[in-house]
């Protein structure tokens, strides 16, 4: 090679290792997410606000001895999952698709597997921060403690299935609609989940017909699974089955319909 060889010519560079590429893209995901003020609002401010307000209003408190925070914590965690996996992931991916970012990364050494892994890891990191923050506030400020029969495995299963279901929905929107439509629809679904998904109002306080419909949808199913897991009361098997069904269905649908450009 001579001194006059232009930059960009020579022995082709070798691709980085798979974990290194995932790490690089995950860091970029988190960096860009932190720059979106509306993201921080949906992912942190609103769930924390929901936890405090629902707890203060004693929404979900019952004669059976349940306190407001017993409903408020799983409800706010579910809201946080929806914000991270549906709203933030869906909107960010929709815009990346419209800007051609996905196409560029798909044609880079990273390819689609690294891209999907980085997005997944990005959501997991955000959710971990959300859960720690919400639980810490519930414990320190609201006097919450897990019920005697609390089941961490059930909580974990709920978080995984809920994340998969809402990420599937977010990617389905992002991969099939224009970015602006994804933005509008994801935000609308977030508000509907908050109002009618067993979060702001527990299912048993909704009109029976509405409760039956809401109960078959992922937001309420996620709240029910998390409630059962954190308090150790109630049977979550039906809600878990509903959540699993949505998770599988939405991921299959997203994988089938997703367009990278």
């Amino acid at each position: 090679m001579t001194a006059t060889t232009p930059i960009g010519v020579g022995r082709p560079a070798r691709p980085a290792s798979w974990p290194a590429m995932v790490g690089a893209l995950t860091a970029q995901e988190l960096r860009l997410a932190a720059r979106r003020g509306e993201n921080l609002l949906a992912q942190f401010v609103i769930p924390v606000g929901a936890l405090i307000v629902l707890s203060a209003l004693d929404v979900g408190g019952s004669s059976a001895g349940a306190r407001g925070v017993d409903h408020a914590l799983p409800a706010s965690i579910a809201l946080a999952v929806i914000a991270a996996a549906l709203v933030s992931l869906g909107i960010a991916t929709g815009y990346e698709r419209s800007y051609g970012v996905l196409k560029r990364l798909g044609g880079s050494p990273a390819g689609t597997s690294v891209l999907v892994a980085a997005k997944t890891l990005g959501v997991v990191v955000v959710e971990a921060i959300q859960v720690v923050l919400l639980v810490a506030i519930a414990v320190v400020l609201l006097g919450w403690s897990p019920g005697p029969g609390a089941n961490a495995l059930l909580v974990g299963a709920g978080l995984v299935l809920g994340t998969v279901a809402f990420a599937g929905l977010g990617l389905l929107l992002a991969g099939t609609l224009r970015a602006e439509a994804t933005l509008a629809l994801a935000n609308l679904l977030f508000v509907l989940a908050l109002a009618l998904g067993g979060i702001a109002v527990p299912l048993d306080r909704l009109p029976p017909a509405l409760a039956a419909v809401a109960g078959a949808l992922p937001p309420a199913a996620l709240v029910q699974v998390l409630y059962a897991g954190l308090t150790g009361t109630g049977d979550a098997s039906a809600a878990l089955a509903v959540l699993a069904g949505w998770a599988v269905g939405l991921v299959v649908l997203a994988a089938w319909r997703f367009r990278w450009d």
């Binding site: 960009g8 070798r14 051609g100 044609g107 390819g111």
Partner: peptide, 14 residues
């Protein structure tokens, strides 16, 4: 992919 350089018309940049 590592052996190809792509210059996309739309930029492909956030």
């Amino acid at each position: 992919r590592p052996r190809i350089g792509l210059m996309l018309q739309g930029g492909g940049v956030d």
